[in-house]
Amino acid sequence: MIVFKVINHALSVGQIELLGISSASMLQVGDTDHVSLYSMFDTPPESVIVGPLAPFPSPDNAGDMLGESTVSDDDGS
């Protein structure tokens, strides 16, 4: 059994100045129990596509995808 005891004394802050709160971030004045913040940002070198400007192909099972209203069934799926 691990007992983790926290004693919060008086907390008084004059001013908070923030330039930006970015994606999946939080600013909270108050207490909380559980916080999980995930952020994945992918810009690999191979994300630069130099070549003919062909449209990106649809995923394999594009017709079954939910929430992708622009997917049509007649594009080879």
Partner: peptide, 26 residues
């Protein structure tokens, strides 16, 4: 509290919270 910009799926909360999960994929 002065905030210039709060971006995508960000949370500004003055009060108590219990469970916060935020997920950003770009």
């Amino acid at each position: 509290i002065r905030v210039t910009a709060a971006g995508s799926a960000a949370s500004i909360l003055a009060g108590n919270g219990m469970h916060l999960t935020a997920d950003s994929r770009i």
